[in-house]
Nucleic acid binder design. Structure first.
Lengths: 344, 344
DNA sequence: TGTTAGCACTCTACGTACCCGAGTGCTAAT
DNA sequence: ATTAGCACTCGGGTACGTAGAGTGCTAACA
């Protein structure tokens, strides 16, 4: 389809534009050592590349910038992942030097480092809490009519929720209930918790606890909905403001809005998918992100696929570098979190 | 010092500028019904007000805008708090209609509503966790060599920290330790926890637990530092971008940076102080905020002064409205949180 | 036949000139 | 003391000219 020379010119054009953020002209290109052609030749080729939709002009007599199709082709065929400079590797791995004991901490730090290293915004999704297994469940009464329910999972995650005790209830009943719940619910995943709660424990509670109905109801309501946005971690939310590509305040607002709103996160981070993905401009589902590219990668704990990492930047993003960084990080993060989780 | 007429003109000028964000001219002012003077008179008075430093010009032949001194005078002497429109009150109180059971939830929602209502950024500081009293302490072993320590306070707040168990330690020792800690530490404030930990429990542990040293050390390290930035709640971080006063991207960046960085929070929110405070422009300690005004107010739970609320906006902020809103909210919030805390 | 030098053309960015309108300060009249 | 009148100032918009970077096309060249 494309000749060798066209490939070369496309690649160098994209590289140059990624680096300079300025439309690339034929003269400029011809001065590069890897380009032995005259400006006129380059102009011809560029005209062809434009005809095929890989390049664009910002106005009739401007230099060329890559189109989305151009970026796509570049990413799919012209990306030669280069080894990261040692310094970057060191900085990236500094997270793991700290020997943090909590998953949450590691992910938080990773998000920070990632944004510092890339100058883009990073979003990390932690392992899905709902798949964790209940290790212990306890109820701590606070006052006459409030108590807090605490659920510890096998990963060391702690969920806690306050709930109201129906007035005039026997305190020993609460203790009984806690015991029964503990017996019956340890080993169940948070996902299945409310199912089990109704199927198994309800009948048993009926037998042992007075006024089980009210108590059960209020407890169930408390435990039912886990906060779902609490395992999203951001790094460098403000890095967008550093990018010369974004100058329209309205667009910046829309973009930041979308990123902060946790309900949009599934649109940005494809939760289920394995491996590395790149979405360029309008390939993104959200219109606010039509000027952005998103690179995502998944990581795992043990054999399970659990979390995702995303980097959000301008379309004119340093794909080569980011891909290398994410490759490295996802591997390291998987190892580290597995280590923590297995407790070795 | 200032004549009646000067006061009137100053007040109307500030009001107008707050509303329009445009320099105010003498013609414009003379058209207002509350101003019965001719433009020429107004010009004379304005020239005087400028001489005294209450007004400024953006260029030689422009209208006037308030100087910081002007705002200060306005806020100190010309602010006639007007009753809030019913609709605002309803919206503000909607937080309390939800009958939330957790302090954290209430504060979070308040921050959101506040920013929606004002179109500025709000920061709420929750009650200082370190003053809470330990209600229960437990240790849940996860694996051979990790465990999670859980501390429940009287307010229903739950702190949890993972820590490593020194290899080859007897599990029963951990249980013993948990029991001893519980006996000795319930009733102590988180603030004094590490003090007590060393003074009282150490000697007792020595008697009952083998290899108390390592275990104690690692546990102590885990419990020692409470995360301090976790009771800061934001609302409308992006509202700055809505303000016409801010167009310089660099300034916006600096400002947002400062606000997000939790180490700067004490500079923004004077943690100790009672009542309502207004800081205008360079009265703020941080240079990034020299174009902002900050209004803060404290609230309490029971008799204790505990938290603060801040609204950050441009100097050209609607002081009258914000003061009314904060007055109302701080009262309501105090009542609501006291209710939750006392558990009635 | 593919490549390149040359040239006319196009468009942006920038600077200058100009005018309009809103506003001011000052003076003189009320 | 107040105000009408007037000359002056300045920002913002529009028009215009130029320099520079870039293009497309044609014709010459290897």
């Amino acid at each position: 389809m494309l000749t060798e020379r066209q490939l070369l010119i496309l690649k160098v054009t994209v590289d140059d534009y990624i680096q300079s953020a300025q439309p690339v002209g034929s003269n400029q290109l011809s001065k590069k050592p890897e380009i032995p052609f005259s400006p006129a030749t380059i102009r011809n080729e560029m005209a062809d590349l434009e005809g095929m939709g890989f390049l664009e002009k910002t106005h009739t007599s401007s230099g060329r910038i890559p189109s989305e199709k151009g970026y796509r082709y570049y990413v799919d065929h012209l990306l030669t992942p280069r080894a990261l400079p040692q310094q970057d590797i060191v900085q990236l791995r500094s997270v793991f030097e700290e020997k943090l004991t909590e998953t949450e901490q590691v992910i938080k730090r990773s998000a920070m480092i990632l944004s510092e290293l890339t100058n883009y915004t990073s979003i990390l999704l932690g392992p899905d809490v709902r798949r964790h297994i209940v290790k212990k469940l306890s109820i701590v009464p606070l006052t006459q009519d409030t108590a807090v329910a605490i659920i510890v999972t096998d990963s060391g995650h702690v969920e806690n929720r306050m709930f109201a005790i129906p007035p005039g209830l026997n305190p020993s009943d609460i203790e009984k209930m806690a015991n029964i719940l503990n017996e019956r619910l340890v080993g169940v995943s948070l996902n299945n918790l409310h199912l089990r709660l109704e199927q198994e424990t309800l009948t048993i509670l009926k037998q042992h606890v007075e006024r089980y109905g009210e108590l059960f109801h209020t407890f169930r309501k408390a435990v039912l909905l886990p906060h779902d946005d609490e395992n999203i971690y951001y790094g460098g939310k403000l890095n967008i403001l550093k990018q010369p590509d974004f100058h329209d305040l309205q667009k910046i607002r829309d973009l930041m809005d979308v990123m902060e709103e946790s309900k949009h996160i599934p649109m940005i981070l494809p939760v289920g998918s394995q491996g590395l993905h790149i979405r360029i401009g309008s390939e993104n589902a959200l219109s606010a992100m039509e000027d952005c590219s998103v690179i995502t990668v998944s990581y795992n704990i043990g054999e399970e696929q659990t979390g995702s990492i995303a980097i959000i930047g301008p379309k004119r993003m340093d794909y080569k570098r980011i891909v290398s960084i994410l490759d490295l990080l996802s591997g390291d993060l998987s190892k580290e979190l597995t280590r923590i989780f297995k407790g070795t």
